[in-house]
Amino acid sequence: MRAFRWPPPPNGGPRTCGPGPGAPRTGRPPLPEPETELVDTPHGVRLERLVTGVGDPVTVFAHGFGNGIATTRPFGSGVHGRKVFFQFRGHGRSDAPDGPWSYLDLARDLRAVADLGGATRAFGVSLGAGALCRLLVESPDRFDRLVFFLPAALDRPRCPAAGARLTELLAAVEVGDASAVAEVVSAELPPAVRNTPAGWAYLRQRLDHLLRDGLAAGLADLPGQVPVPDARALAAVTAPALVIAAEGDDLHPVEVAEQLTAVLPGAILHRYARPGVLWTERADLRGRISEFLNG
């Protein structure tokens, strides 16, 4: 495997091997950056939001730790109706009230954005999946279709490796060290994609957002918390649900996805054979999500 380097070479990176299977074939980000808005919520936290598409149904998309609107938008590319993307507190231009925060706080952010947009369906990835679970404990009938992509924790804290990775990212962003941030973010990429034009484009996009907007210190305690006190409370959720996992993803253990599928009465589980599915199984993943939500 080639060693990771930062900053990238002047020409944008080696072009001899190309990106991994299913990945974008150019070094440009696949989606342009649109203009977002700040919306007031009933609990007093202004959140950054983007609404795309027209008509019904309305689907809300909840992102993962250190991610945001830009990285969540590809999941909705084939989904019908309006799509509501947002940034949790402490991410992007959203407010960062005094912390520390809990998954209940994130669930309030998600509920507020869903209510303001009239969302009837929800998608959550990693941290966003945990916030969605917490919302459903409080309101099991809030949505009529659900997608959980790479759930990271349920009624037990995240593994120590995940906590260390997220702590490292927060520290690198806080001091504005682009090289350190790039080292942490590059771990999200499959080895075959690193040092390719597509990989460099992804890193540039992530670094632009993280170093411009930062990450709030109130996020630091979340890896040691549990999204829900008791997973069995999710048995009251009857909406159809799709749970997606990937074998070999140490930060998002398959066991969490299996537990979530077992407690949700209307859930089905799809597991991919290897991690990095946004790069290796991009078309299949998008099609699977859109087919389920459009159904």
Rank of each mutant, 00 (worst) to 15 (best):
G130N: 07
V51M: 11
P21G: 00
S102T: 15
E247V: 08
A131N: 03
R82L: 05
R156W: 10
H209P: 00
G12N: 11
V263L: 01
R288I: 08
L251K: 02
S94T: 06
S126M: 14
E37L: 06
S94C: 13
L234M: 08
V147R: 06
R212N: 10
F149H: 13
V137Q: 10
A62D: 10
D208N: 08
P21E: 11
R25E: 15
G55W: 01
L234E: 09
V254G: 10
F75P: 08
G287F: 01
A129L: 07
A107H: 04
Y202L: 12
R49C: 07
F61R: 10
A23G: 11
G64C: 11
R134F: 11
R5N: 12
P32A: 14
P8K: 06
Y103L: 08
G64N: 08
P223A: 14
V184M: 11
P8N: 04
F61A: 05
T52L: 15
R5P: 04
D40M: 00
D95V: 05
H270Y: 15
E258Q: 10
Q205R: 11
F148C: 09
V228A: 05
P140M: 11
R204M: 13
P160M: 07
Q87H: 13
G130E: 07
G118T: 09
P14W: 08
G163H: 09
A192V: 14
G124I: 01
A246F: 00
R165F: 06
G248D: 07
T167M: 03
P100R: 02
G22S: 01
T167G: 15
R212P: 04
L132D: 12
A216V: 02
G92D: 04
E35T: 14
P57E: 12
D250C: 06
G218R: 03
A96M: 10
G266H: 07
A129D: 01
V193H: 13
S102P: 04
E183F: 01
P7G: 12
D115I: 05
E258F: 00
P275L: 02
A112D: 14
T120H: 05
A178N: 03
A262N: 11
L189Y: 02
L215R: 01
G53K: 06
T59P: 05
E48F: 06
L293S: 00
R288C: 02
G68S: 11
L110S: 05
N195M: 15
R108F: 01
